[in-house]
Design a binder for these strands. Structure first.
Lengths: 174, 174
DNA sequence: CTCCCTCGGTTCGATTATCCAACCAACGAG
DNA sequence: CTCGTTGGTTGGATAATCGAACCGAGGGAG
């Protein structure tokens, strides 16, 4: 029995950059980026709030913020006309990063410290409030992803990125 | 109505380092680290395999590998006696990072490129193989986490990290 | 009007990390 | 003995990061 998530695939090595993990890290993998997203998600929208919440140097923070705006993860929204000031808010793409933060939070709670320092709770649909202990579940079959064998396959788009030939053989193989 | 994951909490600013997200990034947030985990998870255990798979410079890779071993995320396991060679494998902590990779993969598929380059499939419990489209679901109530309001609260351990007083008031408040 | 404060950044110089090519040691094959 | 493979190190150039100081537009108090 093979470990979950470790399985032979139709390829040995992904071409560099073909993997969406690498593509994501290209956009949000630099230092402070994810902590900035966390601060904004937690309601700290102003420059000085984010400085205080992350502890990042101001110049790095300014650089990250404009990079994240350029990447479409954050947007600048004015909150005062005089003096003209604006804060940062999550776009749809930014909100979609929250699972990444949730995953990092859960991992850190478990492996990076003795006791969690922050507890997250929710009360979905009127149920009683309770702490969150989340797992990845496949929307298609409803089963936890991490407990099953996973296989990976290079798509035609991936082959194109890789500069590999897109053959009938590959288009049909499984 | 407040956006999910954006909600008032009992604290305005988390002390730096109190948050497990920051603690996680401290261990695996540096460049190449998560790509190394990806390679190892995908079955590339040897130094030269990981060089090829990630494209990282050899010296950076050596540094990351020993850091990840020191952090308890990877372990070195010999695969040949003569010549004495060893490869890198995921520990339990390392396998627990896979949700982070899954989250980054899904985000990248959606926001960082036109078409996914790699398709992940699984066939849990003898069902037919199908692509993975996963979401975070609370183990307690079975509901998707991202669709409900989430509140955060500093635990006593978090207060201690923050240097804040641990009062009865705070221990009981909600 | 003047002085001082806040906010959202920039600028500067020093430190640190990263990159890349070359090198090295251990071993096996031929 | 030489060659190729593997798993790294080393050295020097380049780029990112840091921390503190600075700046400019605008209040508000006096």
């Amino acid at each position: 029995m093979c470990k979950p998530w470790v399985m032979a695939a139709d390829i040995d090595f992904l071409p560099r950059g073909a993997c969406s993990i690498a593509a994501s890290l290209e956009l949000v993998g630099e230092r402070w980026s994810l902590l900035v997203i966390r601060e904004v998600a937690w309601g700290n929208h102003r420059f000085s709030d984010i400085v205080r919440g992350t502890g990042a140097p101001r110049d790095r923070l300014a650089a990250r913020l404009s990079a994240l705006v350029a990447a479409g993860v954050l947007e600048k929204r004015p909150y005062s006309d005089s003096p003209p000031r604006s804060g940062y808010h999550l776009t749809a793409a930014g909100r979609d990063l929250l699972p990444v933060l949730q995953a990092l939070l859960q991992w850190g709670d478990r492996w990076a410290r003795d006791e969690p320092a922050v507890r997250l709770s929710h009360a979905p649909g009127g149920t009683a409030e309770h702490p969150i202990d989340a797992e990845w579940v496949c929307r298609t079959c409803g089963r936890p992803v991490m407990e099953s064998r996973v296989s990976r396959e290079l798509t035609p788009a991936g082959r194109a990125l890789a500069g590999l030939p897109i053959t009938e053989e590959h288009a049909h193989e499984h």
